[in-house]
């Protein structure tokens, strides 16, 4: 015998999945939305997305290297996903330093302070966004108009209100095109004002289907979240179509698609069993609908997910998986 044999407990075989593959898989799934954002918002989008990723990964590297003093795992893809999602959730015209603040909050406070990967109770990108929205309300709510001046430098962006913003300000009257096919087409393709990555519903959908196909997520959270949002808004629409917008509009507008497919499905901050995921998504959809209909903010998607994040430990306890041989009668 010429070498030391390795001994370990079973199993001795290992599946091919790992954290890196999952996280970079999410990045790949986000790329259609990324391309759409380049198309609509041009250099600015590219600038924000790159900065967001660099800031987030940089923060992770610095915190791990100099504060926790451990080998940095900033390349495992999770910080990249946070960076991407954070920049997807801000307007293309955001100043770089505000994005830096958001990234530091997202990675430094929402993630690393809780113990790093897998330990954070709240979605880091959403915490970063919520912090930015509270700190820089003006910049966070002035939206460049898509396709205008996208590929020119230094021109002040023309601002456009988001459909949800108009709805919140002036009610259904402010959105006369409601109910016309063009509006839904615009929403689907992303020809509306809004955050960088959230506007083109179709691009997000492609990414979501890719994740379903790869087995990164299951259908429960996104579909039930959107269904529950549609149901909540739909009830009020049926009661008074003159006052409330229709459910299809709500599903396609704002960050609902991005939230349902990419933020609510974040595995770290969502429940682990399918039963729990259903409850999580139901609650999220209802809260999002209620904020949009009656809240002070025009958009409630990110808050709805953050609120449900807080319930995840409870949901995990309340909905354990069905145990084999536990609920059968024996005699």
């Amino acid at each position: 015998m010429s070498r030391n044999l390795v001994l370990s407990l079973s199993p001795h075989d290992k599946g091919g999945e790992n954290v890196q593959k999952i996280m970079w898989g999410v990045v790949i799934a986000l790329s259609p939305a990324l391309l759409a954002s380049f198309y609509y918002f041009g250099w600015n989008a590219m600038r924000v997305v790159l900065l967001g990723m660099v800031f987030c990964m940089g923060t992770e590297y610095l915190v791990q290297t100099f504060m926790i003093k451990q080998k940095s795992t900033f390349m495992d893809g999770s910080a990249a996903v946070t960076g991407l999602l954070l920049s997807f959730n801000v307007p293309a015209s955001i100043p770089w330093w505000q994005l830096l603040v958001g990234s530091v909050v997202a990675i430094g406070i929402a993630k690393m302070a809780f113990g790093g990967l897998g330990k954070n109770p709240f979605n880091p990108a959403l915490v970063g966004r919520a912090f930015m929205l509270a700190s820089f309300p003006v910049h966070m709510t002035s939206w460049p108009k898509p396709l205008e001046n996208a590929w020119s430098f230094g021109v002040d962006a023309v601002t456009a209100a988001t459909p949800l913003g108009k709805l919140s300000e002036g009610g259904v009257a402010a959105l006369p095109e409601l109910g016309s096919l063009d509006l839904y087409k615009d929403l689907l393709l992303g020809r509306v004002g809004g955050c960088i990555g959230e506007t083109a519903a179709i691009a997000i959908l492609i990414g979501g289907v890719y994740m379903l196909f790869r087995g990164i997520i299951t259908w429960h959270i996104p579909l039930i979240y959107l269904a529950s949002l549609a149901a909540t808004t739909g009830i009020f629409w049926m009661l008074d179509p003159g006052k409330y917008a229709d459910p299809l509009f709500h599903v396609l507008a704002g960050g609902a698609m991005l939230g349902a497919w990419f933020m609510a499905t974040d595995m770290v901050t969502s429940p682990m069993t399918s039963g729990g995921q259903v409850i999580f998504a139901l609650g999220g959809g209802v809260i999002c609908g209620l904020i949009r209909l009656f809240g002070a903010y025009p958009e409630g998607c990110s808050y709805s997910i953050l609120i449900m994040n807080a319930f995840v430990p409870l949901i995990d306890r309340a909905f354990p998986p069905r145990r084999f041989g536990r609920e059968v009668k024996h005699g």
């Binding site: 999945e17 999952i22 897998g118 682990m272 354990p320």
Partner: peptide, 29 residues
């Protein structure tokens, strides 16, 4: 088993992906 299959991989934090719950035939966590 040869070297490439003998060793375990680097342990990382749990990312709560819930794959262990999905594959457990006994319905455990």
């Amino acid at each position: 088993l040869s070297e490439s299959h003998a060793r375990r991989h680097q342990v990382q934090n749990c990312i709560r992906c819930s794959r262990c719950i999905t594959v457990c035939p006994m319905g455990l966590e």
